[in-house]
Design a protein around this nucleic acid. Structure first.
Lengths: 208, 208, 208, 208
DNA sequence: GATGAATGAGAGTTCATTCAT
DNA sequence: TATGAATGAACTCTCATTCAT
């Protein structure tokens, strides 16, 4: 093999990462069923057969992708929430700002849509989400609300329910961006939407 | 032809409906790409070719299905909202009760999921939804909130934004039921969730 | 049935003729395999099922078409040749003029092409052609040449061979027109071509 | 994989050739529309999918087949004609002998029939024939006749017309063999037919 | 007789996966 | 380890033919 070719060749970890990156793009653009392994391989600068060296099936590739990208983000969010000890309003606004910035910059993560779209086909993926994503984040958010109650910032309520309710407009903003933005004349802006959400939500949580 | 066979044969109007019903089941279970025309035909008690007598392509079948089932429901909801003139709380609670009853009885409509899942493939379907479903329902809800403001029931605010915010937990409940219910040990109950939503939401809308 | 509809309806012989006319157009345009019975029925102003009332299969329709159109023309040509008693040159020139007029007016009969194209599929059609068309016409032409020899107009030769040779440029002109004319910038003219053929051919037949 | 199976597997260059060979057989026997890719694959000892590795569509396979087989033969004939400087009669007789030998040995090329049969469907193929086959061969033949006139072997005439006329019985012999031979009791012999043609043709070309 | 809805075998094509190199 | 040619099951869609009306 000529040196030029060898130097262009990636190390195994890099190859796996390149495949996952290419898979993300392909699944985002076409959905699971219509994404073609051959396209993923070409974008990853790898042969079709090599994809199968790293992932035994298309489905396994999909699941590995979700696991790689979701885990760290969830851990980061959880770390922030668990460590947070300031006023509730600031925490919620920070969360909303992060999400809004991502959405309004056009980089909306496609994982929620992929989960929704493929949940029938991939029950194990659903389990993973429930355990590793939804469960963790809702628990962390619940903790946040529970502490706010302890501190008397908000009225007594079911903290888990509050977490579910707080999260709903965030999810809606994500889905909206994923579904409607490509064809929408004037795109929906997540920032003002979530700001209004927090304003109303906190007012609803005030002591009576 | 024996009588048994003849009686098994459906009338034309029934045949189209049977195909659409079977298609709904197939698309719900497998998604667009993995639903097989042959299965749809068998469930509809119809030959494979007959499906193409009524719908020129698989995609047209899918779109016809959405149009058939969505239109009347949207019209009904819109009629209720436009005609309503009572207290806001009752209206919202009625809406939530209807949605909760559907979800908690296990008949969650799969159309929202299909929209999310196939939005990349079917931009025309997205347009249809925006115009005929989302646009109509949000307008009707906005009107409801606007009238409540005029009557002084709630504080002044952007009625369109309120409609978007009110709707978020409803959508979340739908998605939750579709994605997690099949594998969840103790299913999420939409009723209490939406009740809590309305309670907080209305409190947030009170005059300051 | 309303009178208007009944009067629009054709008599059986007319219906059969209309179907055959439509079939001619369809086979000429698309070939046997790609001609669709449904299109033929529509052009003939007849239902698809009615085609099968008159012809049991697509193949039978094709064969009936050939038989209807070929027979009379062959009989006419044969009658002319058998009855002819004038100079050979005039007879040949008359034949060439008829053929040239047809070709150069753009009405080239598609039967030779259909025979060539479908000869593998339809051996019975080939038999029919050999017996009813080629055999008859070559025999009549052979007779013409034989009489010319008897009268001393041309040198002694095998009259059957002469018939075969005389016919070759006629067939070539037909095929040429069918294959190349649709895309050819300056169309091949059969008239001058066959005139040159007769000139050379007769010169070749002169007494040494 | 057992040795037997491995040895049955062909090398890449052989595979493409085997597919083309099988396609030739299939198209010759059934025509374009009725030739089945699956049959071609089986005859070529190749999977159905492999055919699409080499040719993107059935039509492309057909066109590649024609191009592969026609080009070299045309080039050879043209080379012979362009280089020839002997007496006209010998050249014509050589050509006739070659054609006769092929036809009378039962290996009549099916390309002329395929051209005739599929000319409606494949206008590009017709263009290819006009440019690469008919145009080239008629030009080369015209040159032969023109040189014969210059040398005084034959009377002055239009050399292009002579080429067209000379070629007609050759084509007729080809078509005859293709259409009638399979079912004909005593097959038509091209040899004597073309010999008679040349005899008469040259006599027609003599100086007056 | 006439209709056209209904049938279903079969075609071309795709693509996840395998495997010889 | 890496390749990409090869595989073949599975899919959508077509259309000659049938048959209930």
């Amino acid at each position: 093999m000529p040196d030029a070719a060898r130097s262009r060749r990636l190390k195994p970890e890099q190859r796996e990462a390149a495949i996952l990156d290419a898979a993300l793009e392909a699944f985002a653009r076409h959905g699971f069923a219509d994404a073609r392994i051959e396209d993923i391989a070409r974008v990853a600068q790898v042969s079709k057969g090599s994809v199968y060296l790293y992932f035994p099936t298309k489905q396994a590739l999909f699941e590995a992708l979700v696991r790689r990208d979701i885990g760290p983000r969830v851990a980061m969010a959880r770390g922030f929430l668990d460590a947070y000890d300031g006023p509730l309003e600031i925490a919620l606004q920070n969360l909303a700002d992060m999400v809004s910035a991502i959405i309004d910059s056009g980089q909306t993560p496609i994982y929620p849509r992929l989960l929704v779209a493929e949940s029938q086909r991939l029950p194990e993926l659903v389990d993973f989400y429930r355990r590793e994503v939804v469960g963790v984040l809702l628990a962390a958010l619940s903790g946040l609300f529970a502490r706010a109650m302890t501190k008397g910032e908000i009225a007594q309520d079911d903290p888990v329910m509050l977490a579910h309710l707080f999260v709903a407009p965030v999810l809606k903003a994500l889905m909206w961006a994923l579904v409607f933005t490509p064809t929408e004349p004037e795109p929906f802006r997540a920032g003002p939407y979530l700001a209004a959400h927090i304003r109303l939500f906190l007012k609803g949580l005030q002591h009576a």
